[in-house]
Design a binder for these strands. Structure first.
Length: 884
RNA sequence: GCGACGGUAGCUCAGCUGGGAUGAGCGCUUCCCUGACACGGAAGAGGUCACGUGUUCGAUCCACGUCCGCCGCACCA
């Protein structure tokens, strides 16, 4: 006797099953040349904290794809791992240390890194645990970390290769500086925030022309300390005569030239721009063109340095106020305008970034970007949905050199060594670190203190995790990978960099498809964020409703690339679905005999049996096709609808009297056989979405199977498509609804059984319905249905039924009059209109020469067939209407 | 400024690559604890698919335009 527990308790099941799966090694993918590989690399979660809802979605999607492929017989590898997340983690650790009253410098580099590794160990554990709770079938034996030995080796190798190729260079450039984190950040890490500010209009006296001024507008007056020119547009007639003259820089009291440059927008502000090459990216370019001096006025912490004269030591914002005050006193402040403008801030700490000139390491992007661009154009790389390829292409077409050095400790240290005496730079792997300078032979050579941008290592993730640069069997077999699943917010940071790195290092695109999903928002449509406190912890959802319910919630109604809102009601519904499946399975198993079910004869299968078999067969096709198109939301919706609406509400209900033995053993056997087969198939199709509950039920139903995970994925079979039965069953549904409507109209409660007589002159109808009379009476909630030839001529059967009382009432009605005549007339009239419209439509198509000549033959044939069918229905309807 | 996306049932959203609005969850109305499930079952109500024009025999779906909303990128001296 197979038995499921009376109540569905997800937490108990999920914990037990995950342990079993792990123990049995189902997640482990081996190099097996007899099978086709299918590979997904997990976007490595940052070890900064816990996983959020976005991760839950990302991981669920990957797990669904992997689980299906595994069942389809692929050697499916889901390669997991975590990311050291350089700056994010470092900031977190610093904050944690601050609470203990310790600063980063107290610990020193070595001490700090020790703390960081402790942090990593703790958070990695937490993240893994969360991923497991979700049911992720990742190959944990292969788990990697961006800073583990192998990945670090890959990083070094790539750095050296690119350096030798001339793609990596060290240069003095203007970079984005975060004065709080005291490090450079890349352009992609700058987030522009609209802030209220001022536009200060300042007068610069023209040298040698007493009482004459030019007016300049700026949002950052303190940068004037570093001004080395003033620029106008060469086409600007207003200022033509100024070119070549000098103006006196107020406060600093220094003469600076007026230059002309196309960069100046004549329409904007006053049309005159102060040029501060050391603190503005555009000014930096102008400075380069005109050979202007670069005066750095800031220290690393954002205070004014010795070049700021009396303002030295003040924070830049304080200096700003003082400078404005003084300008006002001197009568050089013409106007203060309130404006809203976009200020570049650091995406991690929200500090206003300061552009500065610093020696940094860069990656030359132009040539490496080319193959990555071609990949999309020649179809090697596809985005789902496709529109995201535009974002990708646009970014690559406008790519700038990538600043990869960071003034941080947590990360891959740059494998470059510089001689303190002669300045010579050597790039070498850490096991061949130079002790003496190869040029001047002095022992004063030290490693560059900087570390690499965190994305430098993530860019190598698809192959570094498989053992590259070693020629491992894994790399040979699993690379290139197949699908990358990630959010749209990370295309620039990561996807782009993986693709060009893949081409550069391995000569191949690291994956052929990028599946983009949206964000999970709160119920009001806001982003889930810590500062708003509106985040929902996936673990909380899992502990309340189970991982299966969470997974179903995240996937249902989710369409590729679109954001989705999170509602607890949706989770509840998902849990209800799980409960429904659980109970339906329990019911089936309660009635299943011990041991084998005899294979029924064809003749014992009823319309209902063939109908449901046909449906589950089509379902296999629908689910597979949609998963292949990455339409996970549609795929799961199909399984849901099938199981709940068709299987539970119709099939199981219809089959009850048979399994209670009221139709004889053969019929019972066929019903049980069908129940078991259909349930098994549906469970397999549901498994990728809801792995735990399907495993529990499947293994109880098939004690001979260890797991559903490796069961064969159902495929569509032509021999199981019973179209006629599908059609017949839809008539049955209509009929049953009609009977129920009558009963409702007459206030006959479903619990009170009544015998229904249905009379018809049509022999075909009588035969079909008599065949299914038991099924019909079960579904309609009557004690029996007899279909007879209508010789009575009785009209208005409904009334006579009511007059005979409720229980045991006899409905003696022709089919056309099952429903109240008035209502039926109304319905039929509506139906008539519909059919007329349909006929009109059909005619317009069939009379359309273009349609006839251009449309494919089968479409035309189908239309003709349809037209005939509608005509028949229409004629039939007219005769029914006449009778009323 | 450039680009993307969205405007479908009371709410949140699927769907529609031109031919009956096929829908889901929640909510609502009426009835039912019928031998798995009240986390359930049955019957319903509710939509001029933002607006306008065009293409077409036919448009919620295509083209163009308008309005509203949201997002990304660039600029912001």
């Amino acid at each position: 006797m197979k038995e499921l527990k009376k109540t569905y308790d997800p937490s108990e099941i999920e914990e037990r099953l995950y342990k079993k799966w792990e123990k049995n090694g189902y997640f482990h993918a081996k190099v097996d040349k007899s099978k086709k590989p299918f590979t997904i690399v997990m976007p490595p979660p940052n070890i900064t904290g816990q996983l959020h809802m976005g991760h839950a979605l990302d991981e669920t999607m990957q797990d669904i794809l992997i689980r299906m492929k595994r069942m389809q017989g692929y050697e499916a590898l889901w390669q997991p791992g975590t990311d050291h997340a350089a700056i994010s983690t470092e900031v977190k650790i610093i904050n944690a240390l601050k609470e203990q009253g310790i600063s980063k410098d107290d610990l020193g580099r070595e001490g700090f890194l020790e703390k960081a590794w402790e942090w990593k160990a703790e958070y990695q554990g937490r993240i893994d645990n969360q991923l497991k709770k979700l049911g992720s079938s990742a190959d944990w034996e292969r788990e990697r970390f961006t800073m583990d030995e192998g990945c670090s080796k890959a990083v070094e190798k790539v750095f050296i290769k690119l350096y030798e190729k001339g793609y990596i260079y060290k240069g003095k450039r203007i970079i984005n500086w975060c004065p709080v984190c005291k490090t450079t950040i890349s352009d992609a890490e700058v987030e522009y925030v609209e802030k209220k500010g001022h536009f200060w209009h300042i007068l610069y006296p023209i040298a040698g022309e007493e009482g004459k001024y030019i007016e300049i507008a700026t949002t950052r007056p303190e940068t004037m300390l570093g001004d080395t020119a003033v620029a106008v547009n060469p086409k600007d007639k207003r200022y033509k005569k100024l070119i070549g003259k000098k103006v006196i820089l107020p406060i600093v009291n220094k003469e600076i030239p007026v230059i002309e440059d196309d960069y100046v927008d004549m329409e904007f502000g006053t049309g005159i721009v102060k040029i501060t090459p050391a603190h503005d990216p555009n000014d930096f370019e102008v400075g380069k063109r005109h050979d202007l001096p670069e005066i750095n006025i800031l220290n690393d912490d954002g205070t004014i340095n010795e070049n700021g004269g009396e303002y030295e030591g003040l924070d830049r914002l304080e200096a700003r106020e003082r400078i404005v005050e003084r300008l006002q006193k001197e009568g050089l402040l013409k106007e203060v305008e309130d404006i809203e403008h976009n200020v570049g801030t650091h995406d991690r700490c929200r500090t206003d970034i300061e552009p500065m000139i610093k020696p940094q390491w860069f990656v030359k992007m132009e040539e490496m970007a080319r193959p990555a661009l071609n990949a999309v154009k020649n179809g090697d790389l596809t985005f789902v949905p496709q529109r995201f390829s535009k974002v990708y292409v646009h970014w690559l077409e406008n790519i700038k050199d990538w600043c990869i050095s960071r003034q941080l400790w947590w990360g891959h240290r740059i494998p470059a060594y510089q001689c303190a005496d002669c300045g010579h730079i050597v790039v070498a792997p850490s096991d061949k670190a130079p002790r003496i300078c190869p040029r001047c032979r002095k022992m004063n050579i030290t490693q560059d203190p900087d570390t690499l941008d965190t994305w430098f290592s993530s860019a190598l993730w698809p192959f570094s995790t498989l053992g590259w640069p070693e020629k491992t069997p894994e790399y040979d077999y699993f690379y290139p990978t197949d699908v990358l699943v990630t959010g749209y917010d990370i295309i620039f940071f990561w996807v782009v960099r993986m693709v060009f790195s893949g081409y550069e290092q391995t000569g191949k695109c690291p994956f052929h498809t990028v599946m983009i999903h949206g964000l999970i928002r709160d119920s009001l449509g806001r982003k889930m964020s810590k500062s708003l406190g509106n985040g929902i912890d996936p673990l909380e959802v899992i502990s309340k409703y189970g991982a299966d319910a969470l997974r179903l919630t995240l996937i249902t109604g989710n369409s590729p690339g679109n954001d989705m809102r999170f509602y607890w009601e949706k989770v509840e519904n998902s849990r209800n679905f799980a409960n429904k499946i659980w109970n339906a399975s329990r019911f089936i198993m309660m009635n299943l005999p011990d041991g084998e079910i005899e294979l029924p004869f064809d003749r014992d299968f009823t319309t209902a049996d063939r109908w449901i078999i046909s449906l589950v067969n089509t379902l296999a096709k629908d689910v597979t096709e949609n998963l292949d198109k990455f339409e996970l939301g549609i795929a799961v919706q199909k399984v849901y609808d099938f199981l709940w609406d068709e299987f539970c509400d119709w099939y199981i209900e219809s089959v009850k009297s048979r399994i209670y033995g009221k139709e004889g053993e053969a019929s019972k056997n066929a019903a049980l056989f069908t129940l078991r087969e259909v349930l098994s198939r549906a469970l397999k199709l549901l498994h990728p979405f809801m792995p735990f509950i399907t495993e529990e039920i499947y293994c109880t139903l098939h004690p001979e199977c260890d797991t559903i995970m490796t069961a064969k994925w159902p495929e569509y079979s032509k021999t199981l498509a019973f179209k006629k039965d599908e059609e017949a069953y839809s008539h049955i549904k209509d009929f049953v609804r009609a009977v129920r409507n009558v009963r409702t109209d007459m206030n006959v409660p479903p619990s009170k059984k009544a015998h229904v007589y249905v009379a018809s002159e049509d022999k075909n109808i009588r035969e079909t319905f008599n065949e299914n009379s038991l099924l019909l009476s079960t579904l309609a909630g009557t004690s029996g249905i007899s279909v007879v030839k209508n010789t009575s001529g009785v009209e208005g059967g409904t009334d006579s039924c009511v007059s005979q009382g409720i229980a045991g009432a006899t409905l003696y009605l022709p089919i056309a009059e099952l429903v109240d005549a008035e209502k039926e007339k109304e319905r039929l009239t509506k139906e008539k209109e519909r059919l007329l419209a349909e006929l009109k439509r059909s005619d317009s198509m069939l009379n359309n020469e273009r349609f006839l000549s251009k449309a494919p033959a089968d479409k035309v044939a189908a239309e003709k067939e349809k037209r005939e069918k509608y005509q028949k229905m229409y004629d039939d309807l007219l005769s029914r209407l006449e009778k009323l």
